[in-house]
């Protein structure tokens, strides 16, 4: 079985969010970069678990981005991918990214494509769904559990207020979230091995974006918390009723 894991570079979850160049660009100054947590903790580790059960599984990683994404993809290789592909395209248009990944996916004829349920920067949650349309393959989103039995799979996904379990056959695209696998830390052997694992760079082939970011804004600062005397909960109820009008 061949698995393609989609990897995105995102700012650390605790990074300060600020913008530069007249609020048109994310301010990368002093930002620590990580593998998008959904891509790392859930999809990549799930792929590694599948390989641990069946050594014939091959895990390929794909990322779409400039040379500055290479430390991230090396870290992903240290966790456990076999080889990686970087598509040298710095677009942040979801469709451009999905089309680049679809081209890699078609060429590699993968049985399973895993993505995170969203990236923590643009929160678009789009790549898996777009791949579904571009590749005309089954797509199961927000998955919390995946079992592979030969060419058939059983997947449990989140629905509003619960979970739904379904069966389908490979090939398939699955977006992963919490529950799918547990976070791991790369070990020294993995880090050493990752240095020599193949990392192929493919030139960008898609240039036409369908959207463009005009500007960013920070939410208006909260006017400050209004403290209520712990001995006067009637006052809090009054504020929630009359001022906030939420109850």
């Amino acid at each position: 079985m061949k698995i393609l894991v989609c990897i995105s570079k995102t700012p650390d979850t605790t990074a300060k969010i600020a913008f530069a160049e007249g609020n048109t660009k994310f301010d990368e100054n002093g930002v620590q970069w990580i593998i998008n947590p959904y891509d790392e903790w859930y999809s990549l580790v799930k792929a590694i678990e599948l390989k641990e059960k069946d050594a014939t599984v091959a895990i390929h990683l794909v990322t779409v981005g400039g040379a500055d994404t290479e430390p991230i993809i090396r870290k992903a290789l240290a966790l456990g991918g076999d080889e990686a592909i970087r598509v040298n395209n710095t677009s942040n248009d979801s469709l451009v990214v999905a089309q680049e990944i679809a081209a890699i996916a078609k060429e590699g004829a993968y049985d399973l494509i895993l993505t995170g349920k969203e990236t923590i920067d643009y929160n678009s949650a789009s790549i898996g769904s777009m791949l579904c349309a571009l590749l005309d393959q089954n797509f199961i989103s927000a998955a919390v559990k995946l079992e592979v039995n030969g060419s058939s799979i059983t997947v449990t996904r989140e629905i509003e207020g619960g979970e739904e379990t379904c069966e389908t056959s490979l090939p398939a695209i699955i977006s992963c979230q919490k529950g799918m696998a547990e976070q791991r830390i790369p070990n020294m052997r993995g880090i050493m091995a990752a240095r020599t694992k193949p990392l192929k760079v493919v030139e960008a082939s898609i240039t036409t974006a369908t959207t463009s970011i005009k500007n960013f804004d920070l939410p208006p600062a909260k006017s400050g918390v209004k403290l209520v005397d712990p001995a006067n909960m009637d006052e809090l109820v009054r504020l929630l009723k009359e001022e906030a009008k939420v109850i």
């Binding site: 969203e118 949650a125 769904s129 571009l134 996904r157 959207t211």
Partner: peptide, 20 residues
Amino acid sequence: VNGKAIAPAVSVKLGAGIVT
């Protein structure tokens, strides 16, 4: 949950730009 799963696929099929 369902909107996230299908809106981007629909945008691909319509050749439409999308904001989620």
